[in-house]
Amino acid sequence: MGRISAQERREDVIRAAIAEFAIAGYRGTTTAAIAERAGVKQPYLFRLFPDKKAIFVAALVRSAEDTRLAFEEAADGVEGGEQARQMMADAYAQLISTRPETLLMQMQGYAAVAASEAQGDDLIGEVVRAGWMSIWETVHLSLGADADKTASFFACGMLGITLTAIGLPVGAGR
């Protein structure tokens, strides 16, 4: 069995960071907790990333990309419309049920935008907005570039996320 490359270790750290930040947010997560979860020494983190913020940014980018890829793969080969919408909705439900930290990381990112921008730092906001736009574009194209269908898809998705987050079944309120 060979040594693990720096790239593989970096990936392990990003996955560990997603899990830790998803639970405690940016301020509540320590690099020691990330290192422990990733199975590396804390100083090694700083050979891979310059600081905690860089780890957080990498985690934000990865969680957005995981979501975007879930939508892209679900709609691959589907001719838009209702079938694409249903396939993407099912893929997202599968993603957040098997890897809830992906959704939680995105939510932590939204919260961190407000906090960082209040301090005059827009990097996290830029990263979150870029991730959101890549997800939007993937869904938008998969739904035949129909703005109303895309907006409706995300509105229903956000309602489902909210209901799930507060412990109600997705069909509540119908």
Rank of each mutant, 00 (worst) to 15 (best):
residue 5 S to C: 02
residue 52 K to N: 06
residue 130 A to Q: 01
residue 56 F to L: 10
residue 117 E to I: 01
residue 159 L to Y: 08
residue 96 I to M: 13
residue 12 D to I: 04
residue 120 G to E: 01
residue 46 F to I: 08
residue 155 A to F: 12
residue 48 L to Y: 06
residue 102 T to F: 07
residue 106 Q to L: 09
residue 107 M to S: 10
residue 119 Q to E: 12
residue 170 V to E: 05
residue 28 G to T: 10
residue 101 E to H: 08
residue 51 D to H: 13
residue 120 G to H: 00
residue 134 S to K: 01
residue 57 V to L: 01
residue 146 D to S: 11
residue 89 A to K: 13
residue 119 Q to R: 08
residue 44 Y to P: 03
residue 99 R to E: 12
residue 166 I to A: 08
residue 81 G to V: 13
residue 143 L to D: 10
residue 136 W to N: 13
residue 122 D to L: 15
residue 144 G to E: 06
residue 83 Q to S: 05
residue 70 A to I: 05
residue 58 A to K: 09
residue 140 H to M: 09
residue 163 L to N: 14
residue 161 I to L: 04
residue 53 K to T: 13
residue 18 I to Q: 03
residue 39 G to M: 00
residue 43 P to C: 06
residue 71 F to K: 03
residue 91 A to H: 05
residue 116 S to R: 04
residue 78 V to T: 08
residue 163 L to W: 06
residue 5 S to P: 00
residue 167 G to C: 08
residue 111 A to L: 12
residue 54 A to H: 00
residue 101 E to Q: 11
residue 12 D to N: 13
residue 98 T to V: 06
residue 90 D to S: 11
residue 126 E to Q: 15
residue 169 P to D: 13
residue 150 T to K: 06
residue 62 R to Q: 14
residue 45 L to S: 01
residue 135 I to H: 05
residue 8 E to H: 04
residue 47 R to W: 08
residue 54 A to V: 00
residue 126 E to S: 15
residue 26 Y to W: 07
residue 171 G to A: 14
residue 124 I to W: 00
residue 4 I to V: 15
residue 58 A to E: 12
residue 81 G to D: 11
residue 126 E to P: 04
residue 12 D to R: 13
residue 43 P to W: 08
residue 41 K to W: 07
residue 21 F to E: 00
residue 100 P to R: 09
residue 134 S to D: 04
residue 134 S to Q: 07
residue 11 E to V: 05
residue 86 Q to F: 09
residue 40 V to L: 14
residue 14 I to A: 07
residue 62 R to K: 13
residue 120 G to N: 00
residue 20 E to I: 13
